[in-house]
């Protein structure tokens, strides 16, 4: 461990558990860049909880020195929300993949988003179910042939960026695992955002997704122009919908400040005249006939 005067490094946050990912997996890039972001913001290891669901990318917490929870498939967001709402003093970061977040757990996303729950959500999107060895995911392209879709996938993909923007997310960004500087920068911004911050990171799976490869993305990645106004929802949505033109926009799409769920729960406690010494006998006496 470094002393207080030395700047922290990525390795200061790395646990002794070696990542379980395949060689060449995009998630390595996300891990390394995220550890750097943790170092940049001098993350407090003892007061941070990383929460994940199930999937390759959901192994993330094991590789970091902080507290963490490796939960059930699709439940990363409500579990993370529970930690944060019970312990606002902790930093809570959620991790997971596209299947975990937008298929089995897709029903939770609109709600953590609309509540502006005080969480950072980092999603590694590889458009495939890797842990179960290659089935179509909610972000897979229509027509994709996999073991469960031998005649081609009949479904259209979800657009994670548009999904979160339309439900009222206050921070939406997209990165690409092969551009580590951008990942580090956007994760850092997300960690510093007050409220729900969503970073979708395109993170190719070289083992099971033979379509959405690093090569495939080479000409599709486009950095969001510097003159984009991230407080303009219409403009952000237009960028999110660039997916329809086969483009993968990378950068900060949207960021606004709004009251968070914890702010609002704080207002409720204020209205209820909360006090740690509140006398329960007052409530009991209220039930005297």
């Amino acid at each position: 461990m470094t002393t207080a005067t030395e700047p922290l490094k990525a390795k200061d946050f790395k646990s002794t558990v070696p990542p379980t990912w395949c060689p060449g997996c995009g998630d390595y890039g996300v891990l390394n860049a995220t550890l750097k972001a943790f170092a940049d913001i001098k993350l407090d290891i003892n007061n941070t909880v990383l929460v994940s669901g199930i999937g390759c990318s959901s192994r993330f917490p094991y590789f970091v020195k902080t507290y963490g929870m490796h939960t059930a498939h699709g439940r990363v967001l409500p579990v993370a929300a529970g930690v944060k709402l019970a312990r606002p003093d902790l930093r809570v970061v959620a991790f997971g993949g596209d299947g975990d977040g937008f298929s089995i757990g897709g029903g939770h996303v609109p709600h953590v988003v609309r509540k502006n729950t005080d969480l950072t959500y980092i999603l590694m999107d590889n458009s495939i179910y890797g842990l179960t060895k290659g089935q179509a995911s909610p972000t897979s392209q229509t027509g994709m042939v996999t073991v469960t879709t031998p005649y081609g996938l009949p479904d259209n993909p979800v657009n994670p960026l548009a999904y979160c923007l339309t439900y009222g997310a206050t921070f939406v960004a997209q990165a690409y695992s092969s551009k580590p500087k951008i990942v580090e920068d956007l994760v850092k911004q997300a960690l510093n955002h007050k409220g729900f911050a969503f970073v979708n990171i395109i993170s190719p799976c070289p083992t099971f997704n033979k379509i959405n490869t690093f090569d495939f993305y080479k000409d599709m990645i486009e950095e969001i122009p510097a003159d984009h106004d991230p407080t303009n929802l219409q403009a952000a949505l237009a960028i999110a919908l660039r997916a329809k033109q086969g483009k993968v926009p990378v950068g900060l799409l949207y960021k606004v400040e709004q009251p968070t769920l914890l702010d609002r729960l704080g207002e409720i406690r204020k209205k209820a005249k909360a006090s740690p010494d509140y006398d329960i006998n007052v409530i009991i006496d209220d039930y005297r006939p």
Binding site: R75, P78, A81, G82, K84, L90
Partner: peptide, 10 residues
């Protein structure tokens, strides 16, 4: 899920 997260938090 909320409740489990909260209790993990102590």
């Amino acid at each position: 899920a909320n409740v489990i997260g909260a209790s993990y938090g102590g």
